[in-house]
């Protein structure tokens, strides 16, 4: 146990957790609204969209690739699903299945282009981002969908509890989906053979091939999983926004990337954990929320977010360097 703790103390996650704890303690002392059940539920609900996408992008980054087309994928999945849901009724199961299938399909296009044509994933996903998004807005004319089916608008609310101030809490659709997707991602990465293969693929592609892994199948899996998360995320975002807008999601891809990479995933592949990603996301969420609660003008919140990203990556790089030096002199 102490050995495990010593290892944890040196990890990237420990650094992140410390920063988050300091922020949380500071915010709880300095503001009244931070450490309330309502604020925490609101935070979870509003960051679920980024969180679900982050879990998908984590898997892609671990495999040594990158995807930035997922916001366009999500926009398409959302639009098609809600269009059909309005027309044919449908139910929860079918809408999620449909959004997932659309996401998986578009993910497969990425995987095939990357693997079969041997083009680097950043080029492919920049291209498909433009293709998917351009075609979606061209075909739909950029029109919003304002009316969603009533059962969808109403959402899901489990274990509803109303407190003395008549504020209700509960497990809503967003929180539920976030928990499911994080758990699923953790299971895939840590409890399956495929997960280990994805780490190997990202760590050393040549080795993965020599070991006889089916790299094409792994790529398909990884990019389709990214597509699946985009499909799921798109629906809970539509439910939260109570509308579908083809142009609002594209542009958020770098926010998701920031959360995952802050969480310790490497763009070179082979490195990254679900726990780290959760911490990266939490850091961004707590910071943005804290700035609002502290009354910092919202015009300046981006500045502080950027500053914290720079400081935390610089600190991590410095500590990693010291660690390397330590190893060398030992």
């Amino acid at each position: 146990m102490p050995e495990n703790f010593a290892r944890f103390r040196r990890s990237h996650e420990f650094w992140l957790l410390s920063v988050i704890l300091i922020l949380v303690v500071g915010l709880s002392v300095m503001t009244e609204g931070f450490l309330t059940l309502q604020n925490l539920f609101d935070l979870l609900t509003s960051y679920a969209f980024l969180g679900i996408l982050a879990s998908g992008l984590l898997v892609v980054l671990i495999s040594g690739g990158i995807d930035i087309s997922f916001t366009a994928t999500a926009s398409i999945a959302q639009y098609i699903t809600m269009l059909l849901a309005n027309k044919y009724g449908l139910n929860w199961f079918i809408v999620f299945a449909m959004a997932s299938v659309v996401g998986i399909g578009l993910g497969a296009i990425n995987a095939v282009l990357i693997d079969r044509l041997n083009i680097s994933s950043i080029i492919v996903s920049i291209a498909t981002l433009n293709i998917f998004y351009g075609l979606l807005v061209f075909i739909t004319g950029g029109k919003y969908i304002y009316s969603l089916p009533p059962w969808f608008s109403h959402g899901i609310y489990w274990f509803e509890y109303v407190d003395a101030d008549e504020i209700s809490y509960g497990i809503n659709l967003q929180i539920l989906a976030l928990a499911v997707m994080f758990t699923l991602t953790w299971l895939i990465l840590n409890r399956t053979n495929i997960g280990r293969q994805i780490y190997v693929l990202g760590g050393n592609r040549e080795a993965a091939q020599r070991l006889g892994f089916n790299v094409f199948r792994l790529n398909i899996l990884v990019y389709c999983y990214m597509g699946l998360t985009a499909g799921v995320a798109s629906l809970i975002q539509a439910q939260l926004a109570q509308s579908v807008a083809p142009t609002v999601l594209v542009g958020k891809e770098l926010d998701v990337l920031a959360a995952v990479v802050l969480g310790g995933a490497s763009l070179a592949g082979g490195v990254g954990t679900v726990f780290g990603t959760i911490l990266g996301l939490t850091l961004l969420a707590v910071m943005q929320n804290g700035l609002i609660l502290l009354g910092v003008s919202s015009y300046y919140s981006q500045f502080f977010v950027g500053l914290v990203i720079l400081l935390s990556v610089s600190a991590t790089a410095l500590s990693a360097r010291r660690k390397r030096k330590g190893v060398m002199t030992e």
Partner: peptide, 16 residues
């Protein structure tokens, strides 16, 4: 630090 992370940070900060 990797260029993508660094410039993602400065991008956000400078825009801020």
């Amino acid at each position: 630090v990797s260029p993508i992370l660094t410039t993602l940070g400065t991008m956000t900060m400078v825009k801020g």
